[in-house]
């Protein structure tokens, strides 16, 4: 398959990328290429120009500062999965990154490209919502930070403006008594999430002192299931309590769940509590309660 023709520009710096974006309206940013190139090959996307930001040094790297972990937009899924910092302090993110696509995809695909593409069946957005991540973008008006809750707005649409570049994603580092986990029901062909569930729970005095739980693959974008979060809070995280809380996920999803030929909306909705339960239980185990 051959994409339509386009112009190619390589950005040497973030400033260079912004200049190029301004000069080429309608251009698409290219990082690892694992979201954009497949669409272009099938001619589902045909931008007039592509701006390659894949070599901008300031967009790379994972660093910890205080209670937050900053992840450069060009960090690959493989780097996320292998990061000791993330495994320790944002386990769900490392876990999810290790489940994206396959090894070769993980070696090229980037977190910045992934969130900007905002596929509803993608793994990372679900985790970022659950972890209360913040996405930093730079545009002509300067830098701004958007919470993951607000960032994902629809099927492959985000709060990002056309002339903004995602530069980094910050996730809070978990503290003692916190744990996070991601569980996935992968499509057997595409490997995207039929259902992805991410949970972050905090435990104090043997009770859940706070929870953030998100689902992907069901709704137009990764979304929290707030009834579940509310029901978990204040409870001891035993199997019965988790199961009872997880059951509320169905109501949160409402009637907007999308199905396809592989898994219907009804089935996905029915399975949501199962995956929420598994994610919460795994997160609770990591938080220190078995």
């Amino acid at each position: 398959m051959y994409s339509a023709d386009f112009d190619y520009h390589r950005a040497r710096s973030l400033a260079d990328a912004q200049r190029l974006l301004a000069a080429h309206p309608g251009a698409k940013l290219l990082a690892g290429g694992h979201s954009l190139i497949p669409l272009m090959k099938l001619r589902l996307a045909a931008p007039s120009a592509v701006i390659d930001i894949g070599r901008i040094p300031e967009l790379r790297g994972i660093s910890r500062s205080g209670d937050s972990i900053r992840i450069g937009a060009l960090t690959t899924h493989a780097e996320l999965a292998a990061s000791a910092d993330l495994q320790k302090s944002a386990a769900a993110l490392a876990e999810a990154a290790g489940l994206v696509g396959d090894p070769a995809v993980r070696s090229r695909g980037t977190i910045g490209g992934n969130v900007a593409h905002a596929d509803p069946a993608s793994d990372l957005p679900t985790v970022l919502v659950a972890l209360d991540a913040r996405i930093t973008a730079v545009g002509p008006k300067g830098e701004r930070t958007i919470s993951a809750d607000d960032f994902f707005t629809g099927i492959m649409t985000t709060a990002l403006a056309d002339d903004e570049v995602v530069t980094a994603i910050a996730v809070p580092a978990s503290v003692r008594g916190q744990g996070s986990a991601y569980v996935k029901f992968a499509h057997p062909a595409s490997r995207y999430a039929v259902i992805g569930a991410a949970a972050l729970v905090s435990i104090a005095n043997n009770r859940c002192s706070g929870a953030r739980v998100a689902l992907g693959g069901l709704l137009p974008h990764a979304s929290r299931v707030r009834s579940v979060e509310k029901a978990l809070t204040g409870k001891p995280l035993d199997a019965a309590a988790i199961e009872a809380a997880a059951a509320l996920a169905q109501a949160d999803l409402g009637s907007n769940v999308a199905g396809d030929i592989y898994a219907s909306a009804e089935y996905r909705t029915a399975m949501a509590p199962v995956y929420v339960k598994r994610a919460v239980a795994a997160a609770a185990a990591r938080a220190g309660l078995a």
């Binding site: 290219l30 090894p103 070769a104």
Partner: peptide, 11 residues
């Protein structure tokens, strides 16, 4: 290891 079908020669 990368998939050469999902990488521009320019990259």
């Amino acid at each position: 290891a990368v998939k050469a079908c999902t990488c521009l020669a320019a990259q």
